[in-house]
Amino acid sequence: MRFKIIPIIITLVFFTIFTIFFKGLKNSNIYTPNIDLEKKIPSLVFKSFDTDVEIISENIFNKNKFYLMNIWASWCIPCREEHEFLMKLKASGKIDLIGFNYKDNNDNAKKFIDELGNPYDKIFTDRDGTSSINWGAYGVPESFLIYKNKIIKRYIGPINSKNLTEIENIIK
């Protein structure tokens, strides 16, 4: 009896391992934080781009409308690609765009805006990248759709036309 049970158990164990590896193959191996979670925005002090005014984040996104907070930098190449979509989004007029200038210097950032247009209603800066970490972001470009001080959607990487339609549908 013992002789027969052991091989069966071992075969079953390996079969389970096989199934798990098989399923594991389908998962992406690149980690992205859970992006569909609704979350209250963190309370942070934001520094304005051209003046030295400091504002607490809750006072930026407090109106009864949608906001898109977009983290960008003039040195970031994908940011150039997504810029036209931001301009389109702004043109729709239903949403406030908040720019968050990441690890940039003011001259280059201004040049970038002058060259490609300014979709932002307000721009804030994050010189050393620490505010972005506190916000839970991880790089440029990255965008957060915010409503009533709550993050309802998060886009890691450049906004594309698909994301644009999605945002337009949400804010309708």
């Binding site: 990441y102 990248g129 991880y138």
Partner: peptide, 26 residues
């Protein structure tokens, strides 16, 4: 590190890792 996954934040020189190191010391 979330940017160059597979490296530690300490080892990485990505912008994310540099900022995160600053956050830690703060």
């Amino acid at each position: 590190c979330l940017i160059c996954q597979g490296q530690s934040v300490y080892d990485s020189d990505s912008e994310f890792a540099l900022s995160l190191k600053l956050v830690i010391s703060n």
